[in-house]
């Protein structure tokens, strides 16, 4: 899979009808956005099942995953080594889009560490031959984290 470093373009301008798989990073000031794409030879309905079924999600994610696919639903990924990433579902459009906000939690109590929050969006789009899966991760405003 190729990695691209693209200059900043207006929202939406860079994607167009692009259907090739790849990875790139956009930089807008301090905020960095990672974009990863893959074409999967299956309809979006099939791929969606791998997003919302915790066992299937765990298998491809490489972490013990729990995700409640509804706005405000709990998202939790337990990785090997005691790292956990957790947060809330922000947006769900079945068979199309899933967005959650998460941050890293390492340890508990004194000495625990909490990472910077970010948004993860998984976008499925039907393309000839299957589904284009695009995963975008971008920094989330820390202010809105209060109370989470």
């Amino acid at each position: 899979m190729a990695t691209y470093w693209l200059p900043t373009l207006p929202d939406g301008a860079m994607f167009g009808n692009r259907t090739v798989a790849g990875t790139w990073t956009e930089n807008r000031g301090e905020m960095s956005t990672e974009v990863h794409e893959e074409i999967i030879e299956a309809p979006p309905e099939d791929v969606w099942g791998f997003m919302v079924d915790p066992a299937a999600l765990s298998a491809w994610f490489g972490a013990d995953a729990w995700l409640e696919p509804e706005p405000g639903g709990v998202v939790r990924f337990r990785f090997t080594g005691g790292v956990e990433r957790r947060g809330r579902v922000e947006h769900v459009a079945p068979f199309r889009t899933l967005t959650w906000r998460w941050r890293e939690h390492l340890g508990a109590g004194f000495g625990s560490r909490i990472g910077e929050p970010s948004f993860v969006t998984i976008d499925l789009r039907r393309v000839p031959g299957g589904t284009r899966v695009r995963i975008t991760e971008r920094a989330a405003p820390a202010l809105a984290e209060a109370g989470r």
Partner: peptide
């Protein structure tokens, strides 16, 4: 070992696994 665990923890690795698993099931 830590290095090997890190490999496979990135989005590209996850997407590659997702592709294998979805297409493998079909």
């Amino acid at each position: 070992l830590g290095w090997m665990v890190d490999v496979g923890a990135g989005w590209d690795d996850r997407l590659a696994r997702l592709k294998r698993q979805v297409e493998g099931r079909r």
